[in-house]
Each structure stands twice: as structure tokens, then as C-alpha cells.
Amino acid sequence: MNTIPMTHGLALAAMLFSIGLTGVLVRRNILFVLMSIELMLNAAGLAFVFAGARWGQADGQIFFLLILTLAAAEVGVALGLVLQIYRRFGSLDVDAISEMKG
């Protein structure tokens, strides 16, 4: 039985999420934006698992599994998009695709 306070776990999840959010806001390379999104998803999963451990329920881990599935599907599609963007614009700058018109 461990003795980690709930506070510290949620603080860790909040820190990781904030770092990921900062990455999304700061970086202009689309690969780094994707990595930061991974960090944020991971932090959300951490919060779920922490809550599940706190109440001794398996639900937290199940929501982590669902987040994992979401991350896998998201990364597959997003990396396909990255390849297409690089092929069309020759750059990974997210501002390069701001000229998209419908």
C-alpha cells in the first residue's frame, strides 16, 4: 500500500498537461505540436489512473485504455496529414497551411 497523496498525483498530471499545452502554443513545427498533444493526452490518462487508484476502482484504468486508443488513432491520422503537408508545402511550419481555402 502506498502513501502518495492525491494532491501530488493531480499536481503531477497538471504539470505535465501544462507543459504539453505550452508546447502546443509555443512550437511552430507540426511534429513538436503533435508530441505536445501526446504529452497532454498522457497527463489526462495519468489523472484518470490516479483517481482510479484513489478509490480502488478499475474504471480509471479503463478510461486510460480509451485514451490510449484515441491517441493511437489520432497519431495515425495526424502523421498521415504531416506527410501530406510536407509533400505539398515542403515545410512543417504550421503557419504555412494557414493559407488553406475551402
Binding site: 502513501t3 502518495i4 497523496p5 482510479g52 484513489r54
Partner: peptide, 16 residues
């Protein structure tokens, strides 16, 4: 962090 520190302080659960 302020919100969490002010909240309930509890040990993190058991093995699942």
C-alpha cells in the same frame, strides 16, 4: 496546484 493543495489530502489507492 492551489486548488489541489487546498482540497482533500488522501493516500493513493490500492493494487488493481
Amino acid at each position: 496546484v492551489i486548488v489541489f493543495v487546498k482540497g482533500e489530502d488522501a493516500a493513493a489507492g490500492q493494487i488493481i
